[in-house]
């Protein structure tokens, strides 16, 4: 009975909160890149940043899912979910930092400032992606690995 109730809440959480948040985050990720970042690079003008807001939403949902045992069942039942959430969150956070740097740098129209902003944003993006690759290489998201260890 306890299992049944926990599963019920896990299903409710997944379809009611997680799925929507993940879909929103995927669209945000595409939007940040194609509209905000590319828009700023093309126009040279700063724009409103939204990435961190969605990072906050996705991060909070991931945190609650991980902390509440009933919601955590989503990860056990759907083995692709935890890697998706983690990698999506990392991607979103990295791109949000890039968006933030560009927005700050482009808020003043100055060629030197623009060039510096581009260099910093490029370095930040590459360094963060390399760090992400290193982390995922060291701690791979292969679920059955845990099973073999146990």
């Amino acid at each position: 009975m306890k299992d049944l109730i926990a599963n019920f809440f896990a299903v409710l959480w997944f379809f009611g909160v997680m799925l929507g948040t993940l879909a929103l985050s995927v669209f945000t990720l595409i939007g940040i890149y194609s509209m905000n970042i590319m828009g700023m690079l093309k126009s040279g003008f700063s724009s409103q940043t939204v990435g961190f807001l969605f990072c906050f939403i996705l991060g909070s949902v991931i945190a609650v899912t991980g902390w509440v045992p009933a919601f955590r069942r989503c990860y056990y039942k759907l083995p692709w979910l935890y890697p998706l959430c983690t990698i999506l969150f990392m991607d979103l956070f990295i791109l949000s930092i890039t968006e933030f740097i560009l927005a700050k740098g482009f808020s003043v129209i100055d060629p030197i400032r623009h060039a510096l902003t581009l260099i910093i944003a490029a370095i930040q993006f590459v360094v963060c992606r390399v760090a992400m690759c290193w982390y995922l290489n060291k701690y791979p998201m292969v679920l059955h690995k845990y099973d073999r260890i146990e």
Binding site: L53, F56, G59, A63, Y82, F100
Partner: peptide
């Protein structure tokens, strides 16, 4: 790993909120 990840995600979420507010 999930629980540790949740802690990291929460810390990152708070940081994101602060950065969003400053922007």
């Amino acid at each position: 790993r999930i629980i540790r990840g949740a802690g990291v995600a929460f810390a990152a979420a708070i940081l994101a909120l602060i950065l969003f507010a400053t922007g």
